[in-house]
Amino acid sequence: MKSDIILCGVGGQGILSIATVIGEAAMNENLYIKQAEVHGMSQRGGDVQSNLRISSQPINSDLIAKGGADVIISMEPMEALRYLPYLSKQGWIITSSTPFVNIPNYPDMDKINADLDKLQNVIKIDIESMAKENNIPRSANIILLGAAQKALGIEYHKLEDAIRSIFGRKGEAVVEANIKALALGKAMQK
């Protein structure tokens, strides 16, 4: 198996915790992993992305080539589109539908939605509202992960196990909130 994933959003939105769960699940499966992250200046409210590659074969490049990503998981709708040239023509976009507006010239949301709707494989979720309604306000990002499960090609229960081991030290309540988020996301899959 091979899955090339771009995780993206705005600095501070928590894309790296999604990466940590996928990484843990892949490690438990004895898969090869490479994950390039962005640290430093751009974390201050700028666009951030991480290239995560998992494979049953050894991986060479830390970066994904254009047209090579199987899935883009984005915490922000415009950020999902930023990496479009990296998405494979058969690839999936799993994105939060809520814009993060911290720039004066943020484009019209109708345009962003139209751009996303033009693509074949897109799942847009209002993760913030869904997380609030379900009383798991801090697990919105894990809803996205659940919605990406099939596109990632990782078995659902492996992601559950990874959540248990990653969030275990934060207590059972945090684990349960994230398991619930994962299930909510899973149900949103097409």
Binding site: V10, G11, M41, S42, Q43, R44, G45, G46, D47, A65, K66, G67, G68, M78, E79, L81, R82, L84, P85, Y86, L87, S88, K89, N102, I103, N105, Y106, P107, K111, I112, D115
Partner: peptide, 17 residues
């Protein structure tokens, strides 16, 4: 190169602040 999507024209830069 692989076949790719063109860059989306509606995306604007988001510099750090």
């Amino acid at each position: 190169s692989d076949e790719t999507y063109d860059p989306c024209p509606d995306v604007v830069p988001r510099p750090p602040a």
